[in-house]
C-alpha cells in the first residue's frame, strides 16, 4: 500500500491498521510525516497523565448508604444472602458445620437483641408511634406476615422431611426465629406504639423471609 503526505490526516482520523503501517513506512523517509506521527502519538502518551484510578476507600460505602436511603423498595443489604451462594460447592459435612455455626450465631444475636432491647420510659420515648402511623404499621405488618406464612407453607414439606443436614439446620434456625418473633410480638402487644420493638420484629420477619427463600432455592438446586 502506498500512502503520501496527503493521506496523513485521513489516516489519523480513521485509518485502518494497514494504512497506519503504510504511513509509518512512509514516515521513515519523510521527516515532516515522522514529526507529525511523533507529535500525534505524544498526545496519546500525555493523556495517560490524566489517568488516576487510585482507590477511594470510603466512596462505595457512601454510595451504598445513599442507595439504601433513597430506594423506595429498600434493596437488600449486600451481605444478606451472600454466604448462601458458596454452599452448593461445599461438602455436606462442612455445610452442616456452617449452618450449625450460623444457627448458633443467630441464637446468640437474637438473645442479645432481646436482652438488650431498650426499655424506655413511655412518656419520654421519641420512637413512639402515633396512633395513625401505628394503624398503618399494623396493617402493613399483617400483610407482610401473611405473605411470609404463604412462603412458609410452600417450604413446609421440604423442611419437615429435612433430607439434608443443611435443611435440618434451616429448620432449626426457623424454629429459633419463630420463638424470637413470638417473644417480640408479645412485647409489642404490651407496648404497641414502641417503634424500636417494631423494627426488631421487622428484622426478625425479614430474616425468616430470607431463610424461607433460601430453603426454596435449595430445593430447586
Amino acid at each position: 500500500m502506498n500512502v503520501t503526505c496527503n493521506d496523513r490526516d485521513r489516516i489519523f482520523e480513521d485509518g485502518t491498521p494497514e494504512e497506519w503501517a503504510a504511513l509509518e513506512a512512509h514516515a521513515s523517509g519523510c521527516p515532516a510525516c515522522a514529526e507529525e506521527l511523533r507529535a500525534w502519538r505524544t498526545l496519546s502518551v500525555a493523556a495517560q497523565e490524566l489517568r488516576d484510578y487510585s482507590e477511594s476507600p470510603a466512596l462505595w460505602a457512601r454510595i451504598e448508604r445513599a442507595l439504601v436511603e433513597e430506594s423506595p423498595a429498600k434493596p437488600q443489604p449486600v451481605n444478606r444472602r451472600r454466604w448462601f451462594f458458596f454452599l452448593p460447592s461445599i461438602p455436606l459435612g462442612w455445610q452442616t458445620a456452617v449452618a450449625g455455626a450460623f444457627v448458633l450465631v443467630l441464637t446468640l444475636s437474637a438473645g442479645w437483641i432481646y436482652l438488650h432491647r431498650p426499655i424506655r420510659n413511655v412518656d419520654t420515648d421519641k420512637s413512639l408511634l402515633k396512633s395513625g402511623a401505628l394503624r398503618d404499621v399494623e396493617t402493613a405488618e399483617t400483610a407482610y406476615v401473611q405473605a411470609i406464612d404463604k412462603l412458609a407453607a410452600e417450604a413446609k414439606p421440604e423442611l419437615e422431611n429435612s433430607s439434608t443436614p443443611l435443611l435440618a439446620n434451616y429448620h432449626e434456625k426457623l424454629l429459633v426465629l419463630d420463638s424470637a418473633i413470638a417473644d417480640l410480638r408479645e412485647q409489642a402487644g404490651m407496648n404497641p406504639s414502641n417503634a424500636q420493638l417494631r423494627y426488631q420484629l421487622l428484622a426478625m420477619y425479614r430474616e425468616k423471609q430470607h431463610t424461607l427463600e433460601e430453603v426454596l432455592e435449595a430445593k430447586q438446586q
Partner: peptide, 11 residues
C-alpha cells in the same frame, strides 16, 4: 430488581 450487589458490581 433492586439488588445492591449489582450496584456494587457496577462500582
Amino acid at each position: 430488581s433492586g439488588d445492591l450487589r449489582a450496584y456494587e458490581r457496577l462500582y
